[in-house]
Design a protein around this nucleic acid. Sequence first.
DNA 1: CTCAGGTGCTTCGAATTCGAAGCACTACTT
DNA 2: AAGTAGTGCTTCGAATTCGAAGCACCTGAG
Lengths: 167, 167
Amino acid sequence: MAEEETLPPLDPAGLGAYFALIEVSSLLRHTVEQQLLDAGDLSYVQFQLLATLGDAPDGSRRMTELADGVVYSRSGLTYQVGLLEKAGLVTRGPSADDDRGVTVSITEAGRDVLAKVFPGHIDVLRQLFLAPLARKDIESLARILTDVRDHMRTVPPRSAKPRRKSG
Amino acid sequence: MAEEETLPPLDPAGLGAYFALIEVSSLLRHTVEQQLLDAGDLSYVQFQLLATLGDAPDGSRRMTELADGVVYSRSGLTYQVGLLEKAGLVTRGPSADDDRGVTVSITEAGRDVLAKVFPGHIDVLRQLFLAPLARKDIESLARILTDVRDHMRTVPPRSAKPRRKSG
DNA sequence: CTCAGGTGCTTCGAATTCGAAGCACTACTT
DNA sequence: AAGTAGTGCTTCGAATTCGAAGCACCTGAG
């Protein structure tokens, strides 16, 4: 896609990695989304949220932690957590140390759903994503992408987005 | 994210690669989206569409080719191409060999916008995505992800979809 | 304490997204 | 040539998404 001849001599490998990354993640996400919908009536975001909560030591997280964890807008998170709450998969409660905060906790039902969809999820991953790769490639991929993620997490908190004001 | 103790012994590297992939692509996409908006009032999808058209030998593609290229729904594509057309960045016309088809072509203005946003786009890639990687890692990443993409493109057209083909 | 500014979350409205249904046309079968 | 199935795109309604604005609370300076 768009490797115009008239452009500066940019890393062809870099571009290739980028385009392939976007395409792979899009395709993967679509397929996974379908599986989650079939298996447990979950959207991808909802799965990510439940998974993040399930992974937390006490099954709870603050709203902001969740939003950052899944790279999502605050308002969108409010909406999705609302849906999950209505479905009985999470509960909302006040935060211990900060009265502004909302703590979201996964319920038993939530864990059940998670357990129900996980095997199929893994299957999709294996068949669609990991199948063509050698063990070594998978390890390389994990290491490289983890490096990138760490880099991204540190460098720019999130672009030039000072909260209203001061402009 | 959610490596429940009670689950089958799944490839930890595979899971790591998966989670990192999703997170990296999300973060990257968000940042790139912001840059595109600032530099040329383009959404990410619109950029992808223009880039795909710009990359085509004659600057034209069929709707379906575009939709497949960017992993996007048909109806969503109709909407976005409508916006691009209204902005004068593409034109719509009949297809030569198939009266049902619509051929989308990039305009001069479209190419201008593409040229205008591309440098900044590359900058973001370099700084956010490629910066922490060694030359060799970038090449590995490109190769591995390309393999995965090719695999995905061949294996399942798109899950259990009544409409597509016979089921 | 009191005020100003900052943070956590929700509400609101607008834009985007998707799937299903519809329309027009093509392709295959007889 | 007619009939049936399939394809290409758009329209439609519903769901999701985001950013801006609003509200409640926290924090730091006086």
